[in-house]
Design a protein around this nucleic acid. Structure first.
Lengths: 237, 237
DNA sequence: CGCCATCTTGAGGTCTATCAATTTCAGTGG
DNA sequence: CCACTGAAATTGATAGACCTCAAGATGGCG
C-alpha cells in the first residue's frame, strides 16, 4: 500500500473518505509512469477516453490555435485528474504537456463509471470538484475578460498561492513567463513588462521561479482578488 | 404527471433515463414560480444552497465588479440548473437574473445528495454535464483570451445556434447588446460596431432580436469555430 | 568560453475603451 | 393619430492598453 496518495489527499480536501473509498481512488494510481519535462502526455486530436492522475510535478492543458498561438487552459498540480475536459468527445481537443518532470498514471475514463457505481459519495465528490473547477474557471474568465494585464498577473499569482496552499509569502512557481502569458491571454513580451511593473511597485519579487509576495494586502487589492473564493470551499462532513 | 419536463429533456440529451430516474428529476420541478423579465432570482452575497431549475425563458448569471462593470458568466436556457457554481461556498458570488419572463423552480442544493445516492447513473450524468459545461467554458476562455471582437461575436452566435439546437439559419436571441458585450468582455459600444461589421460582411443579419445566419461556412471560419465541440457530445448508451 | 533559451527593453501600430452626441424604436398618454 | 419619453443602438473622436517586430541582455549548461 502506498504510504501516501496525492489524489486521496486532494479528495480529502473536499470530504473525508472511508477505507473503501480510499481503495477505489488508490486504484487510479496503480500504473505510475515517469515523464521528463516537456513530454507530451496526450495530444490534440487523439482518441479520447484516457485520463491521468498526476502524482508529482506540474503539467498543463493547452490548445494550439491555427495562427500558431497557444492558450493554456489549465495548470495541473499533484492530485488532480487530467483530461476530464475531453471525455464526452470522440477525440481530445487539448494537449496535455509536462511542465516539469512528472509522475502520472493513465487510466481509462470508463473506470470512473465503475467508481461512481460503487460509491455514490465519490460520485458526489467528483461532482463537487467539477463544480469547484467551474468556480475557478469563472474567476479566470472574469479576470481575463475584465482586468488589465497587471491585475491578471496579480490574480494569477494569488490563485497559485491558494492552490498550492502556501501559507508563507514565498513559493516556487516552475513556469516560464510564456506559459503564464498564454494562460492569461497576454503576450510573453507584455508579461515580462507587467512583472517588472509589479516588482517596481514592490508588490512581488520573482527570481528564478521563486515568488515572494512583498505586500499581500496591496496585491490582493490590485487584483481585486476575493480570497473567499477558494478558502470557503471546504469539507462539509 | 407533467406532460413534458424541460430538465428531463435536457438530461436525456446526455443519456437515456429510466422511469425511476425521470421521477427523481421531475421532483426538482414541483414548485414552479413565475418571474418577470429583469427579476432577481438570487443575489450576490446571499446565503448559498439554493438552486433553480429553469423551465422556460432565459436567465443569466453575472458578477458585478467594484467599478460598476459587469461580467456575464452564463446564459441559461430551459432545462438547465442554475446556481451550481456557488454551491460549496457559504455565500453566493453571482447574481441570477431573468432575461425574459421566466418560469423556474427553486430547490435546496442538499437534495442533489439524495438524488445521487438513489441513482448513481444520475450522479454520473450530473458529472458529465458538469464536464460538458467545463468544455463550454474552456471554449469561451479561448475565445475571450485570444480572439478579436468580431471573432468573439461570431463564436457567440454559433454557440447559441448549437445550444438552441436551431437547425435553421434563423433563431431568436432575446438578448440586449449590452448583455452579450458583458458576456464577451467587450464594451457595449464596440458590440454595436462589431455587429455592424458582421452585417456589412454579409455574414449575419440581426433584427429585433432575431438572428439570421447568411453565410454559415464563412461565419464558422471567421470564428475559428469547431462545431465538433458540442455536437460530438452525445449519448453513449 | 560559447551556445541557446529565456527574459528584457524600445518603437511603432492596432484594437478597443471611453466620452459624448445622435438616432431609432417601442411604449405611453394626450 | 400624433407627440412625448426613455431605453437601446449607432456613430464620431480621442486616448490608452496591448501587440508585434526587432535588438540586446541574462543566465544556465555543455
Amino acid at each position: 500500500m502506498p504510504k501516501e496518495s496525492c489524489i486521496v489527499d486532494h479528495f480529502q480536501q473536499v470530504e473525508r473518505l472511508n477505507e473503501q473509498e480510499i481503495e477505489l481512488l488508490i486504484a487510479l494510481e496503480k500504473d505510475l509512469q515517469d515523464f521528463p519535462a516537456d513530454a507530451i502526455l496526450s495530444n490534440d486530436g487523439q482518441e479520447s477516453g484516457q485520463l491521468f492522475t498526476l502524482q508529482s510535478g506540474w503539467a498543463y492543458a493547452g490548445r494550439h490555435l491555427s495562427d500558431g498561438r497557444r492558450q493554456v487552459l489549465d495548470i495541473f498540480l499533484p492530485g488532480q485528474i487530467m483530461g476530464l475536459r475531453d471525455i464526452g468527445f470522440l477525440r481530445t481537443r487539448t494537449d496535455l504537456i509536462a511542465l516539469t518532470e512528472v509522475r502520472a498514471c493513465p487510466f481509462p475514463a470508463a473506470y470512473l463509471d465503475d467508481v461512481f457505481e460503487r460509491s455514490s459519495r465519490i460520485a458526489r465528490i467528483f461532482f463537487k470538484m467539477a463544480v469547484r473547477d467551474h468556480a475557478l474557471l469563472t474567476e479566470r474568465i472574469v479576470n481575463i475578460a475584465r482586468q488589465c494585464a497587471a491585475q491578471r498577473v496579480a490574480h494569477f499569482l494569488l490563485e497559485m498561492k491558494v492552490r498550492l496552499r502556501a501559507p508563507e509569502a514565498e513559493f516556487d512557481l516552475p513556469l516560464k513567463q510564456s506559459i503564464m502569458a498564454d494562460a492569461l491571454g497576454i503576450s510573453a513580451v507584455h508579461m515580462s513588462r507587467t512583472l517588472t511593473q509589479l516588482r517596481e511597485e514592490h508588490l512581488v519579487q520573482i527570481d528564478n521561479h521563486r515568488v515572494t509576495i512583498l505586500n499581500l494586502p496591496d496585491l490582493i487589492g490590485r487584483a481585486e482578488f476575493d480570497p473567499a473564493y477558494l478558502e470557503s470551499f471546504q469539507k462539509n462532513d
